[in-house]
Design a binder for these strands. Sequence first.
DNA 1: CCGAATATGGACGATTTCGTCCATAACGGA
DNA 2: TCCGTTATGGACGAAATCGTCCATATTCGG
Lengths: 213, 213
Amino acid sequence: MEINAQSEAPQKLTRRGRSTRTRILRHAADLIYTEGVHATNNKLLRSAAGVSGSQLTHYFPNKESLVLGVVEWQASSILEFHRSERFAGFDTIDAFQDWADFYILSGRPFKDGCSLGALASEIVKTDLDVRDELSQVFKEWADIFREGLERMRCLGRIDASADPARLAHMLMAAYQGGSLLAQIEDDITPLRDSLYAAVDHLRSLTTRRDDTN
Amino acid sequence: MEINAQSEAPQKLTRRGRSTRTRILRHAADLIYTEGVHATNNKLLRSAAGVSGSQLTHYFPNKESLVLGVVEWQASSILEFHRSERFAGFDTIDAFQDWADFYILSGRPFKDGCSLGALASEIVKTDLDVRDELSQVFKEWADIFREGLERMRCLGRIDASADPARLAHMLMAAYQGGSLLAQIEDDITPLRDSLYAAVDHLRSLTTRRDDTN
DNA sequence: CCGAATATGGACGATTTCGTCCATAACGGA
DNA sequence: TCCGTTATGGACGAAATCGTCCATATTCGG
């Protein structure tokens, strides 16, 4: 549950086997994030993870299974982050503001885009069969936002006319689109603008009694 | 100016040469849009455009130049569309609503994403040297929105506190991010939600005297 | 009409990448 | 301790892709 990407492995792995598999996955995720799926080939991954060619085949029979492993790895990381206590289920404006600030103010690198979105856009047109997995993860991600917004609406923190599902998609798109633009322009401004505008929009839907400023 | 992608070619092309080059570019743009950059190889492009291998090399000495040609092709198409009279310089809410509706209501295919954004995200991490070109195009694209919003602000149609540059980035990100999510989920809903939410946010900034509904 | 420049066709080679194969080393349960 | 299972190493092969080369056909300008 907490280490979803590992639990996918067959049970016949020894401790050393699991360690090697995890090491491969870790370096593959890193390489794919910084260099892209296409540039992450056997040679690069072998030298990065310090394994031989046959080990890659042993743990990941083909590239598709490797990419799928990385997708699961990144997905569990992202979902865990969004479900952390830090954001308290996203049922306040402050939580969403904090979420946006995390990407903008924490000095987090932005030049490689979203660890899952950039990967997704690179493979969504290929024959790699990970669409279902990706679709599921993005749905769960959006649901975290949506459920928080629904609570906010029930609690009267945002207007009753607000549509939580629509707003969740808006937040997701603001982050994904902003990340892409920031990558392309090598400038965090588009990401900052789109995230803050999205949170501004949420704020514009707050009911008056909560409008303290 | 109107056919930017062609004007990049050296002048020593005959009529037949220009025709062949354009045909290659047209099919390359189509293939890259539907199949992706990586899958668009010489073999596919040869049979699609009906040319021989040496012709590709003749008009595009390497793949980078081909991709650059396609980027320019798509860029001029997009910029021309956004500068068309239809949107009247984007200085009304209705123009932005019409813009959003174009992607949602016109039955336009969405499964391949934005013709430029999907291409950009696929190559932004590669060694293909088209980052500067892409960056420039996205800047110009955002400027179209920004200038319209600035006029709206000057005319008092939106609040004086509105930030045109930020809102322009919000609109761009809503489209790019929404397109990516729609691709992944094979469902137009995320794109519709993010675009309409973005336009809703603009609408929330309209000054009262223009608020007719 | 003619020579030079351009366009086209198809084969070829160099390189890269994925995945296999087989031998050896380490490990785990009885 | 011992034997079967798992892990590791490096070489190898098959396939794909990019780009070159050279011969031939077509077109352009004078």
